[in-house]
């Protein structure tokens, strides 16, 4: 099981890094999402992997698994989901305003020298 989880984290990180290095926003967004999944699974595994064990104290339990990483990963999942939503909106806005889908939109001087104060 450790091997499976470890390779899953590795695969997701690999795909994530590849996608983040692409030039277009859509792959970059997907890559960031994949990277955050990888980190979340990794975080979950940091409490050691156990099957069928309870995180909450119970009289009938034969053993326990560490509840803290589960709580941490829950927080991290919520946050990374919110972040993904924010990036998607930003990427869409950038695409709609510039008619281009590249991450580096270039630094053309707008008229007026960028004094948008």
């Amino acid at each position: 099981m450790e091997f499976l989880i470890a390779s899953a984290v590795g695969m997701m990180t690999m795909a994530g890094i590849y996608l983040v290095l692409r030039g277009h926003t859509f792959p970059v967004v997907l890559g960031l999402a994949l990277l955050s999944y990888a980190v979340n699974v990794f975080l979950f595994a940091m409490g050691r992997l156990a099957i069928g064990q309870q995180p909450v104290i119970d009289a009938a339990a034969t053993g326990y698994t560490d509840p803290l990483p589960q709580a941490l990963v829950l927080t991290a999942i919520v946050i990374s989901f919110g972040m993904t939503a924010v990036i998607v909106v930003m990427a869409l806005r950038a695409y709609l305003e510039s008619e281009r889908d590249t991450v580096d939109l270039g630094e053309e001087e707008p008229p007026g020298g960028g004094a948008q104060q």
Binding site: V20, T25, V28, L32, L35, S36, V39, M83, V86, I87, M90, A91, R93, A94, E97, S98, V103, D104, L105, G106, E107, E108, E109, P110, G114, Q116
Partner: peptide
């Protein structure tokens, strides 16, 4: 604005990576 959103994407991606 286009120039601003270009800067935003750079800021956003690199800061998110740091946070991860």
């Amino acid at each position: 604005g286009r120039r601003r959103l270009a800067g935003t994407m750079t800021y956003l991606v690199l800061n998110l990576l740091a946070t991860l």
